[in-house]
Design a protein around this nucleic acid. Structure first.
Length: 897
DNA sequence: GGACTGGAAGTAAAT
DNA sequence: AGATTTACTTCCAGT
């Protein structure tokens, strides 16, 4: 298992591995190693759900927890601080997790542990995972380049990389990596955004640590590269290289884990928990630093070549600013590289938003884009293609807008006078929950053409840019400083716990977050994601892309002509309509007729095929894509077949569409919780849909009309995570008054995701507005275990739910209730229609009744909630679907027969 | 000269 | 198992 270093150990070890460094340690944090250790065998199969640690619990860990698998309270200061910082729902939720959802085998300990950088890189999650899994006994202090475990040598980083290059692997804990960046900070509870005025940095444009090719790591190893970086020996993963085979057979993957929280399986839940556990622990501990300076060193490391000047901020509140002008270029090539535990570097620097990371929702968490009061909106979307640059390349510039400018983001509804920090990171664009992308990182662009000041920080291993949102600019920011860095697949896949595959996983989204301070110390977090951005070179030029369709619905009879506008169309382009079930099984495919005579490279004239079932009585959402060749298909677009009976039904079903943005099949298929396919309008606002014009009262109160859904629910389903009621974070344990029920629903949520509530109280309780007075307050959605948790409730949704629990969602469409758990549906047969089949003659294999949720008025139907929501939105072939399915499931698909 | 871009060669992985 | 195809990564050259 792991060992833990005390100060002496750490110092000695660092000195050993960095013999050339004139290391100077100045420990000011108090730590009591002996009492902080995992009390349980990580592999102990007896570890039950009650030993699962949640991400929240890690940051709000109730120290009184007596579980042998949980923290053994060590330092009194830790305890004290914890009780100070973690209050209100946080503590409660921690209990909830501890009681119900802590991943098996996971334990939480405040111990200080130094682990290989890659594991920190892995969102700091896996080190804990590995402990629990006993995957690989190893030293706990690893110096990249000195440890065979390291999959690459961080000291030899890409010259092209700024802080967003390979060095970012360890930036979380290395104060060198990003001197101008605050990996996070531990501030006083009241130290909220905005804090622009207090930022002490050099010009971000002059920061040696933030300019491309001037990173510390570059200077640290000029002319050097990791073996895998050298031409001819790229990514020769010596071990653990993930292959498609592994994805097909997850069992082949040691320590089958996913870096990112995968909402689909209980196993993943555990992983997630582990992930959060570690990262949030770090965060939490750093957060403690503010109030408990004794836990955090005020000085980290002084090398022979550099001294970081720390500027106490706010009079010793634990927040420090680091001069960006420190010369870190003088580091010699031979200078050993080592990492500083994340927990040390956290409080070093400040950033625009100085809210302690521990108090902020993890990047994996779903956050709505707006509340009743605020709306975080992408005014100008980025181009759908942006070729990301590798570490070995120079920057390929900032993400641009289709018009040639840059994306623009605006926070509406903010009346404050203080600027806020807009966070930007690279998120996934697949069918699963939006989360930081494992293979891409935001890359800070600097230069003459960049007008936006930006700052970097690392949050749980994810590079985040922060740019100011200033009232004087109408809270609008031009995102001209965000490039995209591609990390080599082999490197990422080598990380323990990483199960995502890099191959063909080339779509990302820009994710924007803002944390708005509220009276009383709380803050509201909003998040919005851009359209998917294809980051590969090839795809940008070869893949067909649908930019516009002149219609997005028609009657089941089809026959109309639809004009597609886009790029890379060819004479060989085909348009394929398809329908998938909620669990990703394709049940219908139909090639539409393309008028080749009319069609042009940027325009296709398509005759809409009839739907497979012309007798349907509810709108059915399907997808179509343009395919030029075997593997050259566009992103799926959505289309709705209207039943003849309700062809003229009121919107939204029959709402004409100006443009249909690519819709992840996942979302398209699952909006509506299993409805065949309803019109979708994900939160990201990139799906045009009139329904996105939400009523301002689109809050809890508005849920009176919501449908009820039994809680046998798809708790592992990413849909629940895509969005959630606005998360209001309170560090003072007080709920946010003035907001409906202390929280607001995200009106921009995808319909099916919006206003998801879990009623975990007594059956008699309504699911109406929940005020702080009614209940301990905050309904919290946990993406890690896919539960909505409300303070005071102890029943996570993922756990077997009592019948009285209810999940209510308000999507404006029909839903039904299901008192019983649903099962996985299987549609092994694809109904592939041939073009030109006469209407009504198409072979149709109606899906099982429970396979889809019928529209209102269709009579009571069982709500089918798939547990595994593994449909791939844009991967070329169905194989990956299965791969991912297996991957996410970890075990034979639950519920499958 | 450096940043940005587009193209493509070479290699690994998948088929 | 070997051949072919595809995707990934790195490098080069032009702007």
């Amino acid at each position: 298992m792991s060992s833990y270093y005390n100060e002496t150990d750490l110092e000695e070890e660092l000195s050993r591995v960095c013999p050339d460094e004139d290391l100077e340690f100045d420990y000011l944090f108090e730590y009591d190693p002996p009492c902080s250790e995992f009390a349980g065998d990580q592999d102990d199969p007896s570890l039950g759900p009650d030993k699962v640690l949640s991400p929240e619990s890690e940051q709000a860990f109730p120290l009184e927890e007596a579980s042998p698998y949980t923290i053994k309270s060590c330092s009194p200061s830790y305890r004290q601080h914890t009780s100070e910082v973690l209050s209100g729902y946080e503590n409660q939720e921690a209990r909830n997790y501890l009681d119900n959802t802590r991943p098996a085998g996971l334990a939480l300990s405040p111990r200080i542990e130094i682990t290989p950088s890659r594991e920190h890189y892995n969102h700091g999650r896996d080190s804990l995972q590995n402990h629990h899994l006993n995957i690989s006994p190893r030293p706990t202090l690893t110096v990249p380049g000195h440890d065979s475990l390291a999959y690459r040598e961080p000291q030899c980083l890409s010259p092209a990389s700024s802080n967003s290059s390979a060095s970012w692997h360890s930036e979380s804990y290395s104060p060198w990596a990003s001197p101008c960046v605050s990996p996070s900070s531990g501030q006083n509870a009241g130290d909220l955004c905005p804090r622009l005025q207090s930022i002490h940095t050099g010009s971000p444009r002059t920061s040696p640590g933030t300019s491309p090719r001037t990173s510390l790591t570059e200077d640290g190893c000029p002319g050097q590269r990791s073996p895998s970086s050298r031409p001819g020996s790229r990514s020769t993963s010596p071990q653990g290289k993930r292959t498609y085979d592994m994805y097909r057979n997850p069992g082949l993957i040691p320590g089958h884990r996913s870096r990112s929280p995968s909402p689909h399986s209980g196993h993943e839940d555990h992983n997630i928990g582990a992930h959060y556990t570690h990262s949030s622990l770090s965060d939490g501990m750093n957060g403690f630093g503010g109030a408990q300076p004794g836990l955090v060193p005020t000085k980290i490391v002084k090398t022979s070549n550099q001294v970081y000047t720390l500027y106490p901020e706010n009079h010793g509140d634990g927040n420090y600013l680091v001069s960006c002008d420190q010369d870190i270029k003088t580091k010699s090539a031979a200078e050993p590289y080592f990492v500083i535990p994340q927990i040390w570097s956290k409080p070093l620097v400040s950033s625009i938003c100085s809210i302690p990371v521990a108090s902020l929702p993890p990047l994996e968490w779903p956050i709505p884009s707006h509340t009743d009061q605020y709306d975080l909106h992408i005014e100008v979307q980025p181009k759908p293609h942006h070729r990301a640059h590798y570490e070995t390349e120079g920057s390929r510039g900032a993400v641009k807008a289709p018009t040639g400018g840059h994306p623009v983001v605006q926070l509406r509804g903010y009346r404050g006078k203080d600027p806020l920090g807009l966070q930007i990171f690279i998120g996934t664009a697949d069918e699963r929950i939006l989360k930081p992308h494992a293979f891409y990182q935001v890359h800070r662009i600097t230069g003459k053409t960049v007008t936006t000041t930006s700052y970097e920080k690392i949050i749980n291993g994810t590079k985040v840019l922060e740019i100011p949102l200033e009232p004087k600019n109408n809270m609008k920011a031009i995102i001209d400083c965000a490039g995209i860095l591609k990390l080599r697949n082999a490197d990422i896949e080598l990380r323990k716990g990483e199960t995502d595959v890099g191959r063909k996983n080339t779509r990302v989204r820009l994710v924007f977050r803002v944390h708005i301070p509220q009276p009383g110390g709380q803050h509201v977090s909003l998040q919005v994601a851009s359209h998917p951005i294809e980051c590969s070179q090839r795809s940008a030029h070869e893949l067909p892309m649908v930019e516009k369709q002149d219609m997005d619905s028609c009657s089941v009879l089809g026959g109309q002509q639809m004009i597609l506008t886009g790029q890379n169309f060819s004479s060989d382009s085909k348009v394929i309509f398809m329908e998938k079930t909620q669990d990703g099984q394709q049940i219908w495919e139909m090639e539409a007729t393309v008028d080749k005579d009319k069609s042009q490279p940027s325009m296709l004239f398509v005759e809409l095929p009839s739907y497979r079932d012309t007798s349907l009585c509810h709108p059915v959402k399907v997808n179509f894509y343009v395919i030029n060749g075997k593997r050259k298909r566009s992103q799926p677009q959505h289309f709705t077949y209207m039943p003849l009976a309700c062809k003229n039904a009121a919107p939204p079903f029959c709402a004409p569409s100006i443009k249909t943005e690519p819709l992840d099949e996942y979302e398209a298929e699952h909006l509506g919780f299993g409805m065949p396919q309803i019109l979708g309008s994900p939160s990201h606002s990139y799906y045009h849909n009139p329904r996105n014009v939400l009523h301002p009262d689109n809050g809890l109160l508005g849920m009176a009309s919501c449908q009820r859904l039994s809680s046998s629910l798809p708790t592992q389903d990413a849909r629940f995570q895509q969005q959630s009621p606005a998360i209001v974070y309170s560090r003072g344990g007080k709920s946010l008054s003035g907001s409906p029920g202390v929280w607001q629903t995200g009106g921009m949520m995808p319909d099916a995701h919006r206003s998801v509530l879990v009623h975990t109280g007594s059956p008699a309780q309504s699911v109406g507005p929940i005020s702080a007075g009614q209940h301990p307050s905050i309904i919290q959605f946990s993406p890690t275990n896919h539960h909505l948790l409300r303070t005071g409730d102890t029943q996570p949704l993922a756990a077997p739910q009592p019948d009285n629990q209810q999940v209510i969602y308000c999507d404006g469409y029909s839903t039904a209730t299901s008192p019983t758990h649903t099962h996985q549906q299987h549609y092994p047969t694809v109904i592939q229609q041939q073009p030109y089949v006469q209407k009504g003659q198409q072979k149709v294999r109606p899906p099982p009744e429970t396979g889809q949720m019928e529209a209102p008025g269709d009579g009571p139907r069982r709500v089918t909630v798939k547990e595994e929501n593994l449909d791939q939105a844009y991967l070329d072939d169905g194989e990956l679907n299965e791969i991912i399915r297996k991957d996410l499931t970890g075990v034979p698909a639950r519920g499958q027969t």
